[in-house]
């Protein structure tokens, strides 16, 4: 094998590793198993709910919320279908026990993130960071879109928002 070929192969190998590494890193967010088989598509597309009907404070607060029995029981006080998923939910509702959802999206403690600033003020769609939920029939078990500092900064650059460190690290 010629030296140039060998160098070429090494370069290719490095590239492949880098690309797959990045892909793996993207997928490497731990996949979790949710306690209930929640169907986003059903709730959004077929029943016509919007994100903030259940994820309260996503437009008005610093932190958005993951709906729990208090919110679910607005509609699900009694069985409305014969779905086993709903039956499982009703067990929680009737017992008054919180559903042990596993958190999928979070930012580290040293990052300040305000939902209101991004949704209401900047007008960014939920899907940009959380993926297209209209198509999801299975519960969210991993991040649809990776949350990385690089991603945040790229988006800030694109949208002309400041990348001053103190904005997020305070």
């Amino acid at each position: 094998m010629k030296l140039s070929t060998r160098v070429g192969l090494v370069v290719i190998a490095v590239l492949v590793l880098a690309v797959t590494g990045a892909a793996v890193a993207r997928l490497a967010w731990p996949s979790v198993e949710q306690p209930l088989a929640f169907n986003h598509r059903l709730h959004i597309v077929e029943l016509g709910n919007t994100c903030t009907d259940c994820h309260l404070y996503a437009e008005s607060g610093v932190r958005a919320t993951i709906p729990n029995v208090e919110v679910c029981s607005f509609c699900h006080e009694e069985a409305q279908t014969d779905s086993p998923a709903e039956a499982a939910l009703l067990e929680f509702v009737q017992a008054g026990e919180p559903i042990p959802w596993k958190k999928v999206y979070w930012v580290p403690e040293h990052v300040y993130f305000s939902h209101r600033r991004h949704t209401t003020i900047a007008g960014i769609e939920c899907a940009e960071c959380h993926g297209v939920m209209e198509e999801k029939e299975q519960p969210v078990s991993r991040r649809e879109v990776p949350l990385t500092m690089e991603g945040c900064m790229d988006c800030h650059d694109e949208k002309g928002a400041s990348n001053d460190c103190l904005l997020c690290h305070r």
Binding site: P108, H110, D164, C165, L166, H169
Partner: peptide
């Protein structure tokens, strides 16, 4: 620690 664009000297704790 760095000089921000609006003149505030920042301190990034995580760094």
């Amino acid at each position: 620690t760095y000089l921000g664009e609006e003149g505030i000297v920042g301190q990034v704790y995580s760094r």
